[in-house]
Design a protein around this nucleic acid. Structure first.
Lengths: 335, 335
DNA sequence: AGGTCTGCCGTGAACGTTCACGTCGTCAAA
DNA sequence: TTTGACGACGTGAACGTTCACGGCAGACCT
């Protein structure tokens, strides 16, 4: 009839269409569809049958408008391709599902996009946000207005809630382990992303300086491939090293490969320690010693914090909304 | 004032609140917020300032109701923890973002849930669905009504769109490679999930039978750990094998580990071939030979198909809505 | 002066549901 | 017969936006 029958989203049939087809009122259709009382079984079935025939699906917008909205939270992460993030995302989705929230994921890694693009896309669609936002947590919170944002790994903390990591503690853990193993020529294989991530490197440098150990720092994109090439260059440059501390497990795995390619034995000639404790670490040969984070805990913690923020039981930007998590050293084969 | 100031979702302020505060009408606020013309710069800035102060964020429901909805598609996957799925999800998110769609992810792996639970959660929230739904694609399509579903790896094809894989072709690729390498005692390490996934195993068995090769089949959960244990048992059982074909790369990686634990050299004593071609395969030692799928292509294909279905340029359940993708053999070190 | 244009702003209507009522029977008890 | 209760169903209102208008000044032209 009207031009909107061409509507790409098949939301043609409305509740009124069903009501007309069944010869009843809107409200009766509502009663039939939502399992409410106050309707006879025969009518209910007839209405449901008609609804199915017409392909009627209630508008989530109209529903959301009139009822209290079902909460949906945005999840902004830089790169689903890095195993750390899906592991994290998985636990967020799990915790959110338990609360009947749903999760809108935006992976802002592909283009040249930054986290803010993801936030811009997500902001009109969600009631709250969880994300690795780099240094942009302040702007992100501004875009979200009163709706709470939980930022991870962003020590400055412009967001309503902040979850950060105790890098000095982690660095000390690794350093102690390496030193007590007799290692002295340590390289730190850093990510070249800068931003808050750089605090991993500077924490390591500080701890090493404190212990009187010189650390060679080198940089690469946070992927296994880039790390492999960087370590390759490092080896070729002739610098003596007997241990590599990597920005994350993915880079550690790349380092492992480069060392093996270069004829070095691990951990014999050179130890390797990764960071974050992703499952991948158990599949390399040798298996990766790593500063592990319990990723399920991280995701759950983020959702718990968000819940507290939403319910008002924790004040935004208050000390209680700022959590610090610690890594744990898991000693496997590589160091 | 009213009790709804306790609203957990901070959607207190409406457009009317802003209008009242600024002493203007709704429409002027709309003009100010949406960068529309027909408003003076001073008024625009005043309104925007007031809006920010009140923490006003437009209701996505009201907006969606009156404007044509922004499309959001559900993505139902069994397990974000298996690297295959995030790789897939990543490409779906990328392709969807390019179209200004957004993606609601549901990972139905954690509980004892099946894909249908995910669909039930997703159905009221989305305009379309992409998913690994096992054998439930028919029910899923029914739940979604007229809204299109693209099901992956579900040959029966109850969904509007179907993307499946040519397993006989892949099996032949692997078998040829192994046979030409002189392997004759082949084990197929299958997933114990059953469902359409089982077609990988039966295709392999069929191809092997055709070539006159006996294949030992064993089963495990589709995780590296379970595969490792299964292969461990296999080795202990004393069966002679000189090649393992695995259900996926994760299981192949587990098999690798078990072989190494058991003192077997790979590929010397036993070859290993994985399936799907996830990045992890380049990080094991030896690197994994695998039947690779270009995962970015798979995701993009799914979104393209969904787009065609939504726009009506492809008829649901028509032959054009049924795509078959082929694996490609990538020979690395393990076979 | 009369006319038109343009910039700024306001008002009804519509989007598709659900909520809180209201109505109309029918049947049983008083 | 009246009363009350109850089951089945319908009707206005509301949710918060945007769209399509309409109005009202002032500037500018003839």
């Amino acid at each position: 009839m009207s031009t909107r029958s061409q509507d790409p989203v098949g939301r043609r049939a409305t509740i009124m269409d069903v009501a007309a087809a069944a010869g009843v009122s809107r409200q009766t259709v509502t009663r039939a569809m939502n399992g409410m009382t106050g309707i006879s079984e025969v009518t209910r079935e007839r209405v449901q049958r008609l609804a199915a025939e017409l392909g009627y699906t209630p508008s989530r917008f109209a529903k959301g408008l009139v009822q209290g909205a079902r909460i949906s939270v945005g999840l902004a992460i830089p790169d689903l391709t890095n195993p750390y993030f899906p592991a994290f995302a998985s636990s967020v989705v799990e915790a959110a599902t338990q609360r009947s929230w749903n999760v809108v994921v935006d992976d802002y890694g592909h283009g040249t996009a930054s986290g803010l693009d993801a936030v811009a896309r997500l902001a009109p669609q969600v009631d709250a946000l969880i994300g690795y936002l780099g240094e942009h947590s302040g702007e992100a919170q501004a875009m979200m207005g009163r709706r709470p944002v939980v930022a991870l790994d962003c020590p400055e903390g412009g967001a309503a809630g902040n979850i950060s990591f105790d890098y000095p503690y982690a660095a000390r853990l690794a350093m102690d382990h390496l030193v007590s193993d007799g290692r002295s020529d340590i390289a730190y294989l850093d990510s070249d992303q800068g931003g808050p991530a750089a605090s991993r490197g500077s924490a390591t440098a500080a701890v090493a300086a404190e212990a009187g150990i010189a650390v060679t720092r080198c940089h690469a994109a946070p992927s296994a491939k880039a790390a492999r090439e960087a370590v390759d260059d490092l080896l070729r440059s002739g610098v003596r090293i007997d241990a590599i501390l990597a920005f994350n497990d993915l880079m550690a795995a790349g380092a492992l490969k480069a060392l093996q390619d270069g004829g070095k034995s691990v951990p014999g000639d050179c130890a390797v320690i990764g960071m974050d404790g992703i499952p991948l670490g158990e599949l390399t040969t040798p298996e990766l010693t790593t500063l592990s984070l319990d990723l399920r805990t991280v995701g759950r913690t983020a959702v718990d914090l968000l819940d507290a923020l939403l319910s008002g039981s924790v004040e935004a930007r208050s000390p209680a909304a700022s959590l610090i998590l610690r890594h744990e050293l898991i000693v496997r084969r590589s160091a």
